[in-house]
Amino acid sequence: MFELTMAKGSILQGVLEAILDLVNVANVDCSSKGFSLQALDTEHVVFLSLFFPSEVFRSYRCDEDCSMGIAIADMVDLLRASNDGDIITIKVTDQNFEDITITFESPDKTKTTDMDLQLVDARSHRLKISEWHDMESEYQAIFCMPSAQFMLNCKSLSVIDDDVVIRVNEEVISFSTKGKSGCVNISHVPNKTDNPEKASVTLTHMRGPVSLTLNLRYMKSCAKVSTLFDQVKIGLSTKLPLMVECKIAEKGYIRYFVAPKITE
């Protein structure tokens, strides 16, 4: 049996709302440690991997590891029907592994709403990626910035063109674009520390200068999720997709992997 409860408007609900513009169906794995979700966008440019540790929920129970495909848009639609103050329970029982049950309970416990959502096949939404601690060392540059700044950069650039070039070296981190009507270049002089301050742009890992071209549509989606958190961490490598990460509590995370564009 798997069962988690959360208050309406909790961070999981906010994240599910924010990933809707990229993701239809997601693969969810539950273990005693927490709730993880993986999904690919329909064009296979963005892979989303998130992990919510059990302690971020109001209550959490998972007797046996389970894996299921969930139609995220349908789930979000159901969750939107909850009222302020409701406690939301998501439950899968061992006897019935064809659907999940979502329950809303009003704060005064006088009203309960039960809904069943059919599970779907989401096996094609899995990708084999290395353990993160191995992978992080493969990035040529990793920096952190306030997520509001990241969103502002993406919005400012998308006025001019569909693409952004992100360049990182020891001295500067820049976001630039060039279109028919002009060009924009936003440069940040980074701090260099392992312990980034919340309000600044910090270069935490640097093995050499690197630049990548990315479609701003995907970057704006990543930025939308990141604004649920204070800081965003961005990793660049010429051999890996761009990584955009937000931390959830101590052990949790949301990671986007975005395939860059390449000049032929």
């Binding site: 690919l40 064009e43 296979h44 440019v45 963005v46 892979f47 094609s124 899995r126 990708l127 084999k128 990626i129 693409d163 071209t213 479609n215 051999k239 890996l240 997709p241 992997f257 395939a259 860059p260 564009k261 390449i262 000049t263 032929e264």
Partner: peptide, 14 residues
């Protein structure tokens, strides 16, 4: 014009 790559270039299916 730069061409969009897809993730299968970097990761294999599980």
């Amino acid at each position: 014009q730069p061409k969009q790559q897809v993730l299968s270039r970097f990761f294999s299916p599980k």
